[in-house]
Amino acid sequence: MKNKPFFAVVYMFIVTAFFSSILILFAQLTRERVEANKQLAFEKAVLAVFPETAGVEKKNIHTVFVEQFTEDKTSGAWLWKPSGKLSGYAVPIEGKGFWASIKGIVGVTIDRQTITGIAFYEQSETPGLGARIVEPDFCGQFVDRKIAAGDSPIGIKPPSETLKDNQVHAITGATQTCVRLEILMNDGLKQWQQSMSNGGPQQ
């Protein structure tokens, strides 16, 4: 009976059904957690771009986020109001990296001239190369950089070049990631500046 063709089909069907049902159950169980992780990673990135909120403990991230940040629907940025007063903007940036999309947040001062920090909450760049954009060595460079007027607000230059006050050094060996990051950061910033000049948020 083991060698009859119908047995093979029935057997395959039973085995597939058995394993699939376990998987579906398991996926249901973890789904909420996966969603929560995504939200938390986003909130953590928003807090990380301002020095004052960057050090918040993991368990307090959500409370601080809800208390101090509100979304500005017209420009898409998040407004930072530590004690009811607008103190900075968290501008979301998004675009294609070398592998998949890179999503991050750029912190901007209230006068919209200076970057306070940058953080990424989604990226799948090459581990050890492009993925190092999330490391403090790279992100830290952006702190206090100016946002230039014109077509390229910020620049990511090869490590051999001397920098202007709106530029940072790229990661050696991760040229592709850095080129794309520069494009998506500039696009995000320009888009935000544009929506701000069409009447910014009410304070």
Binding site: N3, A8, V15, T16, L23, F26, T30, V34, N37
Partner: peptide, 27 residues
């Protein structure tokens, strides 16, 4: 397991555990 479909069954079993690992890491 019938011999002629054993490769498929093996692949299915391996895939099953890999997906579980993937889900655990994600969560």
């Amino acid at each position: 397991t019938p011999r002629n479909i054993r490769m498929m069954v093996q692949t299915l079993i391996i895939a099953f555990y890999v997906i579980i690992v993937d889900l655990i890491l994600k969560a």
